[in-house]
């Protein structure tokens, strides 16, 4: 599994679909904390994390339970939201925290970690 991360609008999904030559994508949604991850590419995992925060689910524990599914995907895409201003909304703060914890976990599990920046890539692992 390749973990692909980067800021908003940087071209993460374009990179993944081109590299894996597939449109078999699951787009996470902000109100689904129990998604179907059986697709080649899982996009916008931060939305899943947001849904978990709202529903009181621990996203890392959830992903550990689903490790056999997650670790066999081609790519998991997460938006890095950790570097901006501290949000005033406590839900957003918790979202930011949980998203970073999720990224740390996935980075450990991933075979490859790639950062996408201005449409260009940087291999981190």
């Amino acid at each position: 599994m390749e973990l692909i991360f980067g800021g908003a609008y940087q071209g993460k999904l374009d990179y993944a679909t081109e590299k894996y030559n597939t449109m078999d994508i699951y787009h996470c949604r902000q109100n689904v904390s129990d998604p179907d991850f059986n697709r080649a590419i899982i996009d916008a995992l931060e939305e899943f994390v947001y849904a978990c925060v709202k529903d009181g689910v621990d996203p890392v524990a959830y992903l550990k339970e689903k490790d056999d599914v997650i670790s066999t995907r081609d790519a998991v895409i997460v938006k890095d939201i950790s570097l901006g201003l501290t949000p005033s909304n406590p839900v957003m703060r918790e979202w930011r925290r949980q998203n970073s914890l999720t990224m740390k976990y996935l980075a450990q599990r991933a075979d490859t970690v790639t950062r996408v920046w201005c449409g260009l890539t940087q291999k981190v692992k």
Partner: peptide, 15 residues
């Protein structure tokens, strides 16, 4: 400038 790694404003559920 790089201003893309904050939480930003959240979009609606269809992005």
């Amino acid at each position: 400038h790089y201003i893309f790694s904050g939480t930003g404003r959240r979009m609606d559920n269809s992005g």
